[in-house]
Structure formats: structure tokens, C-alpha cells
Amino acid sequence: MAIIAMVSAKGSPGVTTTALACALSWQRPALLAECDPAGGSVLAGYLSALEIEPMGLLQLAVAELRGTAATEFPNQIIDLDGKQPGRRLLLPGIADPVQAGTVRPTWDRLTAFFAGLEEGEPGHDVIADCGRLSSAATPWPLLQRADLVLLVVAATSLRTISPAMPAATQLRRDLTENGRGTGSLGLVLVGDGPYRSAEIQQRLQLPLIAELPYDKRTAAVLSDGGRLRGNASLLRAAAAAEDTVAQAIARRRAQLNIGQEVRHG
């Protein structure tokens, strides 16, 4: 796998919790990159018990402008798993939305840098938390280049599902006009509600990649810190989604390779 970008629509939170659950439970080495232009939340939430100096995406973006991102990268990441050092990493996001303006000109180069992490030793998948699409500073170059773009939707009510419709339309439009087509799009549903997953999938016209339970206790720990249970239902469901994600990426890459062969043939 390579870059998995996660986004949500207005009124449908849960991207950071979903991305963090995947980063902590997947078997392959993973880097959780907080790319939300509204700011990162893991340092102030899940890792709030630690005292960590300012670091992360902003500093990496500045290093990219100087051409030193590769050497600076190890200084800007946090190891999330002391038992398996180097396998589950965090690149903290910006601390203030004002800083999004500094990062914006570097998204193309940062995306290329993230893509190259797959070839490292060990190779890392990048799970990019891109926040809500309502932001004017959405990292579109990252979404356009991602192997998989997952729209995370809380399936608990019409209030959380309805905003996902224009968000899905916006994603299809932008990826068609500026990216590599809509074949990278997928859907993650969180929780249960009055509508069946098949109905939501059909309405949004997105393939369902994963369904995660509304695990209030685990979500609270991932949001605010505390003791995390390894057998929690949210973590088990996130771990089970890894194979589906890998298969979706493999199909997507095969489609792109066939398309390139046709164009150059």
C-alpha cells in the first residue's frame, strides 16, 4: 500500500479517530500524517499525557522548501508503539490553522515525499488525516495523488449522512478534473443508524471499504488519551479493514497500469 487519505464532510466527524485506529491496528508499518488544515489533534488528545516540543508537518514543510525533508523527517515523527519501534509513527499536524498557508505551497512535494516512504526499509503506508472538505485549505494535491481516498461518514443520522452527498460529488468532480479519475474513492461508515449501509453506499455512489462500530469508550481514549484496550471492537474492526484496503489499492494500481499501457501502446 502507499497513501490512504481520509476526509469527512461537514457535520460528520470521526476522521482522526478512524485514522488513528487504523495506524495502531494494521500489521504493515504505517505513518499517520495529520494533514488537516484546521490543525492536528493527536498531541493534545491521545498523547496529551506527554510533553512534546513543537514538531511535525509544519517543520517538514519548511525543510521541504529547503530541500532537506529527507534528513529532517526522522526529527519530526513520534513513535506510537514502544513494543515495535519504528512501525507505527505519527507526523503531528499544524498547531494553528494560520500555519496552513505555510504548508499549502508544499503539498505537491510533500505528497511525493509521502509516496516514497513505501520504498523505505521498512516501507511505510501513509494514512493521511485530511480533515473536513469544508475547509478552503483542503490539501487537494494529496487527495489527487492518493492511492485511496476514503470518505468517513458517521451513519448515525440523516444529519450526519446528508452532508456526505455534496462532499462525494465534490471529490468526484475534483479527482476527475485534476487527479487520476474517481477509481480511488471509497467509503467508511462509522456506527449504525436508520439507514442500511447498502442504502448509504448507493446514495453516495461510493464503494464500501469498511464499517466501524461506534465504540464510545475507545473513541474517547483515541480522542482524549487514556488506557487503550487491544481487544476493543473499534480496533478489531479497523484491523479487519486492512486487507480490504490493500485489495482496493491493488485494483486501483492495476487499472492505472492498464491505462498507461493503452495510452503508450
Rank of each mutant, 00 (worst) to 15 (best):
V15T: 14
P166F: 15
S184P: 02
T218H: 03
R104D: 14
A232L: 03
V153G: 03
F73N: 06
K216R: 14
W140G: 03
E118N: 05
L208E: 07
V126R: 00
L158Q: 12
R145A: 15
C22P: 01
E177K: 15
V153Q: 08
F73T: 09
A239W: 00
A220F: 10
Q247N: 08
P194Y: 03
W26F: 14
E242K: 11
A168H: 02
E242M: 12
G45D: 11
G123E: 02
L142P: 02
I209G: 00
E51H: 11
L31N: 09
A19H: 06
L143E: 04
F114Y: 13
K216D: 03
V42T: 15
I209S: 05
A69D: 05
A241F: 03
A232T: 01
S134K: 09
I258H: 13
S162D: 08
R173G: 11
T244Q: 09
G86A: 11
I78H: 08
D174A: 14
G179H: 03
M1R: 15
I77Q: 09
L235A: 02
E118F: 06
L117K: 02
R104H: 09
L171M: 07
A137L: 06
C35G: 08
C130Y: 06
A112P: 03
L212Y: 06
Q76M: 07
V152H: 02
T218V: 09
L32N: 13
L171V: 14
H124N: 13
A250K: 14
A23N: 13
